[in-house]
């Protein structure tokens, strides 16, 4: 394994896994605490439409995916605000329409149909220098936005009614958050794919929640767990030549169930 590190694609995979875990741990914690898991699933799946569009127009598919996931996240907030429709319903609609558009665009794309497996299930070995750069920019931006206004973010996440009353611009925070979620999801597609993204976003925070008494600790622990899961999963998948995305998720899932068994007592004791 160590000698494999001389290959650029292995280097990119490992650096990418670490960078993605940073974004994933921070945004994942927010998603879990703000109950946006389904919302994130919708954003992830709708990006498939954009990936299809990318192929159809022969532009970088991930750019199309980013475009679609931002439209979806902003669209869901807008529709929820203007109508009485349950957000679950809107999310489901965007989810399915995004997938349908993706399938349609790919069918319309001339020539031999592209292999979509790496977008659906991820392939950590396809991470390029450009992906690493995008992740680095995203991480820097995310860390700055969240840490520089941490008290306000926490107030918004914990109690948006009260935050609004004391003059925190919760609407702005909501838009920024949803756009950040869309960007981070697209960034994770390379690693675990559209279908498995939710698992990577929610498993580390779900575990760290059992052992954290503050939002900040929960974020930091989630980041570390993400790194451990991604690197372990990647190593196993590399050694046994099995799909990396699925392996990472299964490693995370195994940790989750172990920590439930080991952690329940501990967690209850911690929550004085």
């Amino acid at each position: 394994m160590i000698e494999a590190f001389k290959y650029t694609f292995v280097q990119n995979a490992v650096i990418g896994a670490v960078l993605a875990s940073i974004a994933c741990g921070i945004i994942g914690t927010i998603i879990v605490e703000k109950k946006l898991v389904m919302m994130s699933g919708g954003i992830a799946h709708s990006s498939f439409g954009g990936i299809g569009l990318g192929y159809y127009l022969s532009i970088e598919p991930i750019i199309g995916g980013l475009f679609f996931s931002i439209i979806t996240s902003v669209g869901i907030v807008q529709i929820k605000r203007k109508t009485n429709v349950n957000s679950d319903t809107i999310i489901g609609i965007f989810w399915a329409i995004g997938m349908a558009l993706g399938i349609l665009f790919i069918a319309l794309t001339p020539g031999y149909p592209p292999d979509m497996t790496s977008y659906l299930f991820g392939d950590i070995l396809t991470i390029s220098r450009w992906d690493v750069l995008f992740m680095l920019i995203m991480d820097t931006l995310l860390l700055f936005i969240i840490s520089s206004l941490f008290h306000y973010w926490r107030a918004y996440l914990f109690d948006d009614e009260f935050s609004k009353i004391i003059g925190i611009p919760v609407r702005l925070y909501e838009y920024i958050l949803f756009i950040l979620i869309a960007c981070v999801i697209v960034l994770l597609i390379k690693i675990v794919g559209i279908i498995l993204v939710i698992a990577l976003l929610t498993l580390p925070p779900a575990i760290s929640k059992m052992f954290s008494e503050s939002l900040k600790k929960m974020m930091i622990l989630s980041v570390w767990l993400g790194i451990v899961f991604c690197i372990t999963g990647f190593t196993i998948s590399y050694l046994y030549d099995i799909p990396s995305g699925a392996t990472i998720i299964l490693v995370s899932g195994t940790f989750y169930f172990i920590s439930i068994i080991l952690g329940t007592e501990n967690a209850i004791l911690n929550k004085k």
Partner: peptide, 11 residues
């Protein structure tokens, strides 16, 4: 939500 009493008050 993982937050201490003091942090809620200081909000």
């Amino acid at each position: 939500f993982p937050i201490k009493v003091k942090d809620v008050a200081m909000m």
